[in-house]
Nucleic acid binder design. Structure first.
Lengths: 148, 148
DNA sequence: ACTGAAATACGTTCAAG
DNA sequence: CTTGAACGTATTTCAGT
């Protein structure tokens, strides 16, 4: 359930290079490959490591039209209900409840502005959603080009 | 510079499992391991594949206090200038210029609410930044737990 | 540009400390 | 919990098509 300093160093290496070999990691942290494997396996089983993935150029991925949308809901909103509805809308990648005047924020990533508009319409039509306020991304200044 | 259908299938497999072996991928797309390696190597060299990483539980990572902050700037802001300043503030992971009333949005991920407040203060003190409007994440409804 | 084979390196398991 | 050896499998290179 918990991670020690060695685990943390292994995680750091794996975050920088998800394909690092156990032998490679072992050399860096001073462990045998099998010991590293045991730790990595345990962290995967414990859910500390949630998966391995590949960072792909978003242009090639074809979903470079991004927007952040604030949701203003009427009445009391059950987060579980919101999750159920929003997670089924295509191109809605992420959602959270937040402090402030808005009830929730969703992140949309679509292939084109028209596709973004379609997703936005679907969000607006969700029950309980009163109004929305969108910020369409003009340019990414810096940051990860997003997982998934 | 470009990717064909086979490349796209390989990317799909690698996105789902960044540690998939070339043999495994080859079986799925109908190519020999060496042919798959050639294509993956080419995509890495071309920048189509930007890296391999590991998805780590944000709780363990210790930066589960998140906020989205809208920036309202005075006068004309050069995006390059904004990038230079914001990218040097610790815990500011991502920033983009957007349409709408705000000029930019930054995503902050800190270890604790106090650490978040520190980062927020630094953003507010950035030259050209007139005012901010924050939405602190209460709960993640769904979505990737961020690639960092 | 893909295949297939050969050499090298790695992953994986397990008995033992 | 780690090691080291043994076995199976994957990666990598290269000649050939």
């Amino acid at each position: 359930m918990s991670v020690d300093d060695l685990d943390r160093r292994i995680l750091g290496i794996l975050r920088a290079d998800g394909r690092a070999s156990f032998a490679q990691i072992g050399d860096d942290v001073g462990l045998s490959p099998s010991a590293v494997k045991r730790r990595v396996d345990r962290m995967v089983a414990d859910g500390v490591i949630q998966g391995f993935t590949t960072l792909i150029d978003p242009e090639i991925e074809g979903r470079s039209t991004e927007a952040y949308v604030e949701l203003f809901c009427r009445g009391t909103v059950a987060p579980a209900e919101l999750t159920r509805i929003l997670s089924q809308i295509a191109d809605v990648d992420e959602a959270f409840t937040v402090t402030g005047s808005a009830d929730a924020i969703v992140r949309i990533r679509a292939q084109s502005p028209p596709a973004l508009e379609v997703a936005l319409e679907k969000v607006r039509l969700a029950p309980q959603v009163d109004s929305t306020r969108s910020a369409i991304v003009l340019s990414r200044l810096f940051g990860p080009h997003s997982a998934q």
